[in-house]
């Protein structure tokens, strides 16, 4: 693979340089701009690290709506946020890549995907590819950072965790299982400073050909029955959905009840 872009020598200087890439979120019900949930968890993760110096970076448009959302991150207790100004419709990856290669953070944290726009979740991968840094997705926590190696906990489904080690500098994304972001306080949010940074804008041409509309409800998959006779097909189509009241065991001994529960637990394979 590609050689690493830079040697991990910064830890010698003490503080761990962490950059958190933050985006403008969108509330799922009202569509209002807000802190993006996963990005905010990323900020929280960064704040939980020992001796870290955190920079918040956003690339995008600065208008009233986005400023409110960005101030949401500042309200978590930051004095400033670096805003790489980009026109609407710009591809922010070149801008962010140049900002990051300039700032040379040890660890870049971001959410898995944006809450608006394409929301493809590609950004950390493309940045990692461009910068030649390793990339780890779906973190629940960063356990420690020592000698340029970070020990991470990756979130697996159902509360399970996997421990990984990665050589810094690296890009990591945060899973919904990471601890929730702290409250954004109005005072620091109001006082926080937006440090504007310039970067050349590259427009995202491809997306012009797309049509975007509000998400349609996906059709529920029907159970297709391959049956020889029309009668069977009709029966399958007209069959009532399963369920409608469960099984109730009354007047049973505790042992019988336990037996029934045990059977169900076995079926669901939750007993180890």
């Amino acid at each position: 693979m590609q050689p690493e872009a830079q040697a991990p020598d910064a830890q010698a200087r003490g503080a761990l340089e962490v950059a958190v890439l933050v985006s403008i979120g969108r509330h799922p019900l009202t569509g209002r701009a807000r802190r993006a949930d996963q990005d905010a968890r990323g900020v929280e993760l960064a704040m939980s690290l020992d001796k870290s110096r955190i920079t918040l970076v956003h690339a995008g448009v600065l208008d009233e709506e986005s400023e409110g959302a960005l101030r949401g991150y500042l309200g978590m207790g930051f004095q400033a946020l670096t805003l790489v100004e980009q026109p609407p419709g710009a591809d922010v990856i070149p801008a962010l890549a140049s900002a990051l290669s300039e700032a040379k953070p040890q660890l870049v944290i971001t959410g898995e995907r944006a809450e608006q726009g394409e929301g493809s979740g590609l950004l950390p991968y493309l940045l990692a590819e461009r910068l030649g840094w390793p990339m780890v997705s779906g973190l629940a926590n960063v356990e420690k950072v020592e000698n340029g190696v970070a020990t991470l906990l990756q979130a697996l489904p159902r509360g399970q965790r996997r421990r990984l080690q990665v050589r810094l500098p690296a890009i990591v994304t945060v899973d919904g299982a990471a601890s929730a972001a702290r409250q954004s306080a109005y005072g620091p949010a109001r006082r926080g400073e937006m440090r504007l940074a310039e970067a050349p804008a590259v427009f995202d041409e491809a997306s012009n050909d797309w049509t975007v509309q509000a998400a349609r409800k996906r059709p529920k998959r029907l159970k297709i029955v391959k049956a020889a006779s029309a009668r069977d097909r009709f029966k399958a189509a007209a069959a009532k959905a399963e369920g409608g009241g469960g099984q109730v065991l009354s007047d049973v001994t505790p042992e019988q009840g336990a037996e029934a529960i045990y059977k169900l637990l076995k079926e669901e394979a939750v007993l180890r």
């Binding site: 509330h27 019900l29 009202t30 209002r32 807000r34 309200g75 978590m76 207790g77 702290r182 409250q183 954004s184 306080a185 109005y186 005072g187 620091p188």
Partner: peptide, 30 residues
């Protein structure tokens, strides 16, 4: 405590976020 510390306990932060985002404390669709 709320405006400067950002330290409303328990469900407080969530309720306030809901009020900001959905104009009701339960976070229901307006």
């Amino acid at each position: 405590l709320t405006l400067e510390h950002g330290n409303t306990p328990n469900k407080g932060a969530e309720v306030l976020d809901n009020l900001i985002a959905t104009d009701n404390p339960g976070g229901f669709e307006p």
